[in-house]
């Protein structure tokens, strides 16, 4: 289980990021990228337990007496969810400021050294919001339900 997780998790994350980045012009996007990321995290949870991220990766103390709802990672997920929602709504509203309809998107090509032409789309901001909502929401649910 742990061996599988070790091999699979990086692959999942890379695929998730690529799906996320191509989302505005090809199939993919914030939602599916977020779901894949959650799959990676869930795999870690199943293989290593909930506190592995805290103890093993971030090297923090874990207070085992606290309720799952006040767990530090869960609080962080919740904050991520709120942040994501705010970004999503905000990016939709931003279009109104430019006198365009709600949810209008625009893009521009930027030339970066090394990378060449890069498409800089405002849809990415919206996608980041969705990504955060999905990751934050689902991981909160998984952690809390998993703890019971």
């Amino acid at each position: 289980m742990r061996t599988t997780a070790r091999i699979v998790v990086p692959i999942i994350l890379v695929v998730a990021i690529s799906l996320f980045l191509q989302g505005h012009s090809l199939p993919g996007g914030g939602f599916i990228g977020g779901v894949l990321t959650v799959a990676a995290f869930t795999l870690i949870y199943v293989a290593y337990s909930l506190d592995y991220l805290e103890v093993g990766v971030l090297d923090r103390e874990v207070d085992y007496d606290r309720q799952i709802g006040e767990h530090r990672t869960v609080t962080a997920y919740r904050r991520l969810f709120k942040f994501g929602l705010a970004v999503t709504v905000g990016s939709g509203l931003a279009a109104l400021l430019f006198d365009e309809p709600f949810l209008s998107q625009d893009y521009e090509y930027v030339h970066l050294p090394l990378f060449g032409e890069i498409e800089l789309a405002s849809a990415v901001v919206f996608d980041i919001g969705i990504f955060c909502v999905v990751v934050g929401g689902l991981l909160t649910i998984f952690s809390v339900v998993g703890a019971e």
């Binding site: 279009a95 365009e100 309809p101 709600f102 949810l103 209008s104 998107q105």
Partner: peptide
């Protein structure tokens, strides 16, 4: 000048 109103999301 009442009448139905349309809104196109994202233009």
């Amino acid at each position: 000048d009442a009448g139905g109103i349309l809104y196109q999301l994202g233009g």
